[in-house]
Design a protein around this nucleic acid. Structure first.
Lengths: 196, 196
DNA sequence: TGGTTGATTGTCGCTATTGACAATTTATGA
DNA sequence: TCATAAATTGTCAATAGCGACAATCAACCA
């Protein structure tokens, strides 16, 4: 005997609008009013469904990793081949320089990462995802190179993640394409070391 | 026949105060008033010597890069050994996990990097330093492994930079120490590949 | 020692921002 | 259709933030 609960609908709308604002104006650069307008709502609604700025930031971190998780899952099920071929496909995917375009998601993630000191909860959330990411890559590498020793696989997984992240945050600065090749080259060296 | 010019004195004071504020409140999280107070000056002085917020941000990027350059130079002249030994010393320096502590400088640099979309000038400044950093590392590696082919040295230099940056921004999240070892391990694998 | 130049301080007006809460509207089940 | 719970809108007061500029102060040099 009441109106339906729109929390599940409004919250993502709000957070996505907030994400766009963060990409455009920075984490504290947009007023709640602007964010509300971006979401096509009144400011009071942000408060109603999420809360004040701090609440928004923490919730945004949750949303971002949620989407990254989905992307990761999708990627894993979309990767062709098996064993070492699958690893190769991953590298091709990660280090494509051609059709690169700045994504709101990545900018937001970088921004949040640079703010973990100020928002400990955000740090916890990001950390959780990072650990998951490392594990997934590690598993992929183990499948590809089952005879490689465990610690080395860990190191290579870390390296590949590191290279792809660096690649992502350097692109917006307009670094020459040569660096993209270097990134992929380094990743290949790392992965190749597992074959010996 | 006038008062001495304090620009060279005040500007660094202002920018260092701004840096502390950025680390504590974010790039747009502190008011000019707060920044002025942190610097122990009146707000009007910030305006007099540097300008508005945008001017501050760009100037801050310059200052950060300037300090990084100094650090880099100092590091290069402090690194013991020669040839491959020097490279090893670099890795030891970069991936120490023991006495790690969050530095204002690194937080500020990360924050600025995440904002290059909004401040193209900042992007240019950071890009310049990154290229210099790559070159320095590349030179060091070439000295250590003169017979390695050029493209591979480039890739390894990129990889080492990438690993050390990733290491730096992951520490504040409190990642388990194992990741630090992985970072160093991956760097060793990369460097080792130059010896073959 | 006094004039000049630039450092420093003080103040004004305007707008933006936020939190709180009251008022209103609307979909639903009884 | 009507009561109800929740969505949505509206308003208010208090404060914060910024740009501009006038006013004052202090070192230097002739």
């Amino acid at each position: 005997m009441a109106r339906p609960d729109l929390t599940e609908v409004r919250t993502p709308q709000i957070l996505d609008a907030f994400a766009r604002c963060v990409a455009r104006y920075g984490l504290e650069g947009a007023s709640l009013e602007q964010i509300a307008e971006e979401a096509g709502m009144k400011r009071s609604i942000l408060r109603h469904y999420v809360g004040n700025r701090e609440d928004l930031v923490v919730a945004l971190a949750g949303r971002v990793v949620e989407r990254y998780r989905e992307d990761l899952e999708e990627l894993m099920s979309a990767l062709p081949g098996a064993g070492a071929k699958r690893v190769e496909a991953l590298l091709d995917y990660l280090f494509t320089t051609e059709r690169w375009e700045p994504s709101v998601e990545n900018v937001v993630a970088d921004t949040l990462l640079s703010a973990v000191d100020r928002y400990p909860e955000v740090g916890e959330i990001m950390k959780g995802f990072m650990e998951e990411l490392f594990e997934v890559y590690e598993g992929l590498l183990r499948d590809g190179y089952p005879k490689a020793e465990r610690a080395k696989v860990k190191a290579v997984a870390y390296g590949v993640v590191s290279l792809s992240f660096t690649h992502e945050w350097m692109m917006p600065m307009g670094m020459p394409a040569g660096y993209g090749r270097s990134a992929k080259g380094a990743a290949k060296v790392l992965v190749g070391s597992l074959a010996t």
